[in-house]
Structure formats: C-alpha cells, structure tokens
Amino acid sequence: MTVEFVVFVCAAAMVLLGAVGVIVRNHPVHAALSLVLTLFGVAVLFVAQEAHFLAAVQVIVYAGAIVVLFLFVIMLLGVDRSENLQIEPISVQRPLAAIVGAGTLAMILLAVVQARDAVRTDSGLGLDDATVTGDPDSNIRQIARDLFSNHVFAFELVSVLLVVAVVATVLLSRRPDKLGAVDSGTSGSSKVSGGVR
C-alpha cells in the first residue's frame, strides 16, 4: 500500500469519527473537541493533496480561531451542561432526518460515480507540484499569483465583509442596558430604547 493510501485511511477515520462525535455527544464541549478532530483530519487531507497553504490556514483559522470562539461562547454563557439526547421532542424527526440524509448521500454518490468518467473540456490554470518544480513554496506562490491577479477585487470585498462582521458582532454583543443608555442619549429614540430594555 502506498503512503498516501495509509494517510488517507487514517485521516478519513479521524474526519468521520469526529463528525459523528459532534452529533452524538450530549455535552457541547465534547462536541467542540470532536470538531477539532474533524478539522485536523481535513487539514491532513489537504496536505495529502498538495494544498499546503490551505492546510496551514485550516489549522490556524478553523482549529485555532473558530473552535476557540465556540469554546469561549460555551464557557462564558455557562451552557456547558449535558443535554439528554434520549428526549425526542418531535416524534418523527430523527427517522425523517436519517431518510433525508441517506437520500442526499445516495444522490451525491450517484453524481460522483457518473462524473468519474466525464470528458474534461476546460484545460484549467495548472497546479504547481512541489515535488516537480523543486520549489517548496510553489503552492503558496501559485495561490498568491491567482489571488492577487485574477481575484483582487473579490479579495478587497472580503476585507470589507470582515470589517462589517466585526462591527456587527460588537453591536450585537453589547449589553442591552448600555444600548439603552446610548439610545436615550440621542433625542427621540427613548421609546425604542424602552422596547429594547
């Protein structure tokens, strides 16, 4: 067996175990830690497919930032207590969810198998391989060239999106009483601030 096959099997086991752990663990902190397992497995699969830059970003942004954000919210809000998963508030929900999930999986697999032998029509931009070019940074160089030449406008828009998201979150997570104080400071909006409070 080739090395890539062994890596694929191990990483796939990590990904699927973590994913199942997210939905069957009844404690939110355990679910978040299972999510870390899945995200690391996906990062390993990125490395196995020569996407070195994305693997680094995956570990830093997802495992480093997003899961830590989840854990902060769980800890700060004090919602870190187990919920009973035996209770099923809507009686047919779980069988229906299983049926819909299996049906979607079957459709995607059918599409994958059908597309396997499809004829390629577009030649693509090419993908630099570090083992071929001899440059260990060829992946990040190529992504940077594509990003800052073909997609520079989208890149700038994404920065605007991040600023808007940060401002929106600061506004959302302010305490309601402070919000009311600010609102009552401006004339004519005391009725609104009363509603907020």
Partner: peptide
Amino acid sequence: ARELGDIRGQTIVFFVMVVAAAEVVVGLG
C-alpha cells in the same frame, strides 16, 4: 483542484474559509 489541475479550486476554498469565519462571528453574536 488536484484532479483537474486548476489552482482556482484552492483559491475559492480560501474565500470560503473567510466567509465561514465571518459567518461564525455573526452567528455566535
């Protein structure tokens, strides 16, 4: 991206990650 030999598949993953981060921030708020 690897199967078709096209770097654009990896570029779009970069954008998906940024949008996912923004989505998590607003959603958690």
